[in-house]
Design a protein around this nucleic acid. Sequence first.
DNA 1: GCTTGACCTTGACGTAGCGTCAACGTCTCT
DNA 2: AGAGACGTTGACGCTACGTCAAGGTCAAGC
Lengths: 252, 252
Amino acid sequence: MRIGELAALVGVSTQTVRHYHHLGLLPEPARLANGYREYRLRDAVVLARVRRLAELGLSLDEIRDVLADDQGRELREVLGELDADLARQQDAIAARRARLAALLARPDLEPDSTVSPEMADVLRDLYAAGSRFAEVDRDLLTLMDTTAEPAARDAVLDLMRPLTEPAALARGHELYARLDAVAGASPGDPRVTELAADLAAHIPGEMAAAMVEHLPAGEDGDQPWLEMMGDELTPAQTEVFRQAVRILAGRT
Amino acid sequence: MRIGELAALVGVSTQTVRHYHHLGLLPEPARLANGYREYRLRDAVVLARVRRLAELGLSLDEIRDVLADDQGRELREVLGELDADLARQQDAIAARRARLAALLARPDLEPDSTVSPEMADVLRDLYAAGSRFAEVDRDLLTLMDTTAEPAARDAVLDLMRPLTEPAALARGHELYARLDAVAGASPGDPRVTELAADLAAHIPGEMAAAMVEHLPAGEDGDQPWLEMMGDELTPAQTEVFRQAVRILAGRT
DNA sequence: GCTTGACCTTGACGTAGCGTCAACGTCTCT
DNA sequence: AGAGACGTTGACGCTACGTCAAGGTCAAGC
């Protein structure tokens, strides 16, 4: 029997057979004068054994180990581990399908919808497009949602909830518009101070406390998170936030 | 922000970030004078987006496609396919776990137990070790079980069932012993003819018909399956089978 | 000034289980 | 004698990175 016949008999490709030779799973048979491998029935039996184990899901390394110790002991162990592993996979897949179902149920599906469901709702309520600044804010929140610890994330979500009420929402959109409007102004523009005050007034008390705690200002109001926003903010907008945080820090 | 900070912020390794650059998933940021990559918040936002999609199970290629068309249309499609794929995986895993559970329930677990459950039962009943020849026969059956079509396999199993009854079983073991005993004899030994007759008599009628049909003998009794068994059989044993098949062919 | 250690750079190789050429030899059929 | 179906070894490709290797950069401590 040559390699093609053997492969066809057991239902694998010739490459598979050669691969198993390479890994030492199947002994190399005798060669004919022309160099062709000459297989016997025993080889087919061994190959079929390997395939059955492989189809159960064992790795080829595991199969070699199992076939090496001719007791069934190791096989039972390996199959037990495999079953446990499959159980874990089932759980993981079920969880992912649950998330997928939740996502597919959303009418406004887009890549940023793949944050946590709660955050997705807040985003939808808060940022009804239109403002360049709202997009930046939205980016920050999605980033926080994916990187922060679940506990911290939930805390932020709780603090944000008051801002999604209709009145606060309208006020928020007005503030975004004013942030857009002040973009090209100089940091000394009178609108900057005014906007900082309104912005600070719009932030609920507990949220202000949290912000001041988690975003400690340097001596001269130099805040790392403001620096990180880098080219997203114009100088005037940066100044608005600097002043707003200073007001919030005094309030707590 | 340098690559390490970015990676830590989003929760991936620096290699992952570079890998995404290589694939074009994440644009290469500006470089500092020393050649270091300098990231901005936007990069973190994009990276987080990629990660969220990757954790849903999308391939990196799919993610690139999804982020390329900025409508949510393709995303919905891809997620739908992904869900269908996961459903298939769930079924496959459930089936494999069922097989594993059946296997782990067997007290006599060994690699050859991983044939179909019915065949495993037949093997346990028929081949209570001891005979070199029984092992060969057993190998043949396991091979057939893994390579044959399910229908053919079930047919063979049905035909074999009469052989597992206690009386037939005892007779079978005796025949195996005699096949072992005749191993070193010459093909002309009187025991050969006698054993061939007893062996043919032991095969139930329908099974004989099936064998003759599926193992057509050549003009001079040269059977390919006998040839395939090659070095497993001694000349005398080969002769036993040749004669037995001739008897069965005459009987049908 | 020198070392140490933590970071960064590019490039190449390894993972699992084969599939898929490439470049070539062998056998059978017509 | 040519075609077509087989066989041989060897090397590269696939996913999503991990893991060296061989260096360059930078801040801190001696």
